[in-house]
Every structure is written in C-alpha cells, then in structure tokens.
Design a binder for these strands. Structure first.
Lengths: 111, 111
DNA sequence: ACAATAGGTGACCAAATAGTCACGTGTCAA
DNA sequence: TTGACACGTGACTATTTGGTCACCTATTGT
C-alpha cells in the first residue's frame, strides 16, 4: 500500500538489480542497450526487460526521458538512500562503515 | 544464487520490514514480543511471524541469541549499508543527502 | 509513401511465495 | 513430575509474480 513497498518489491528481483547496476555504471541507456546487457547474463526477451524497467520506474528508482523514438533511462539514488536512513541512524553509521572496511580488508587478504 | 538475493527478498515483505522497524526502535525482543507488534498492525498467527523472522535471519538482517526458553533478536545493519554502497558512491552521497534534506523541509512546510 | 526501427499493451501460463495448521522439542515453576 | 510456556518443523493451499506472446503506435530514413 505505501509506496515504499514498490521500491522493495522492485529491488527483490535479480534482473532489476542488474539493470540498476548497468545504469549505475553508465546512465542514459535506451531500452535496446539495456536489453543487450540483460541478455548477456540471462536469456530473456525484450518484453521481459521492458516490464522490469516499468517496475523500476513505478518505484521511482529509474527515471526515463523520451528522445525521439528512443527512451533513455537514469538511475535515481534517492529511494536507496531512504532505505539506508530507515534503519541506520547517524550514530551507528560510522561504526558500520568501520565494520565493513574491516571485513573487506579481511576478504582481500583471503583471496 | 548470490546471497544478496536473500537480503532483497527478505526486505520485499511489509511484515518483515515492520519487524526490522520494531528492532530498530528497540533491540533484543523475543518472538512473543515481536508477535504482539505484528498483530497490533495486521492479523497474523505466531507461525507467520516466526517464519518471517527466520527469513530475516537467513538474510543476516537479524541475529538471534537463545536465552533460556526465549530467543532474543537483534538488528544487523551491515547488509543495509551494503545495499546503499552498491548504488551510491561517495561522490554523489553528499548531493543525495542535500536533496533529501530539501525534500523533508518542503514536506514539513506542507503538513 | 514505405519499410525498418524503438518501444508499448493486455492476456495468458508456470513458478515462487505468504500464510495456516497439526504436531514436536526444550525450559521453567509449582 | 507435571503442566504451562516459548519456540520449531514440515506439509498443504491460495495468491502473487516472472516471463512470453500476439498485436499495436510512433519515429526515422530512403
């Protein structure tokens, strides 16, 4: 019911996260370009990709802009940040960061 | 397949987010206490709540510790932080924060 | 004008998920 | 030790969700 539900539901799918990753790496891609990204990882039709993009747009995680017959897509990080702020307050934020740094350092030593 | 999938799937359910909210507000609650929190909002059996908690534990969003016949639950913010870091780099982080602050200020003026 | 390109819509099916229930285990207190 | 309490497990259904398909609109280039 609340619109944060759209955000979490949108993030629950691996293909949609892959799309966000692609847009995080480079913004402004068209549907066709994103389709190629996805089909490089899994087998999925154009319709599937378009459907996933629509879900991301409705969640406001992706913003799109029409340019001629193409549609360019942009990553909107605001909802992500609000997830963070929901369960991590400013006081613990520093501790968490230190924890993750330690963890990453340890994993780097392993591999 | 990757274990980040567990985290996002876990967050995709409203009841589970409610449980995280409850633990964010106060840590160390038992299953019975959390059951009361949930049934205050929706109608759900004890089994449902226990099942949701297990999903959260498997995603490492909640850590539990047995104490006698009770089981205490604690919120683990690390996976949340890693979601944040996946799509928000350090350079845009400042801009986002400013954006959200402006938005909240505007909404406060409205209501 | 016409073909090719880029994208959109609604219906449909298979697979995953939420929720419940009957039953079982361990723990405390009288 | 007996009963009440706190919690766990596995099976079962109803609903949701992921993905595809046939068909449609709009824009570009020749």
């Amino acid at each position: 019911m609340p619109d944060d539900d759209l955000v979490f539901k949108a993030l629950a799918d691996g293909t949609r996260r892959l799309l966000l990753d692609a847009l995080f790496e480079r913004d402004g891609r068209s549907l066709s370009e994103l389709e190629e990204v996805v089909t490089g990882h899994t087998e999925m039709s154009r319709f599937g990709v378009a459907k996933h993009l629509r879900v991301l747009e409705q969640a406001d995680l992706v913003i799109s802009r029409k340019a001629g017959r193409e549609k360019h897509h942009y990553l909107n990080p605001v909802p992500i940040r609000m997830i963070h702020d929901r369960w991590i307050d400013k006081y613990t934020e520093g501790r968490i960061r230190a924890l993750i740094d330690v963890k990453e350092r340890a994993e780097k030593d392993d591999g």
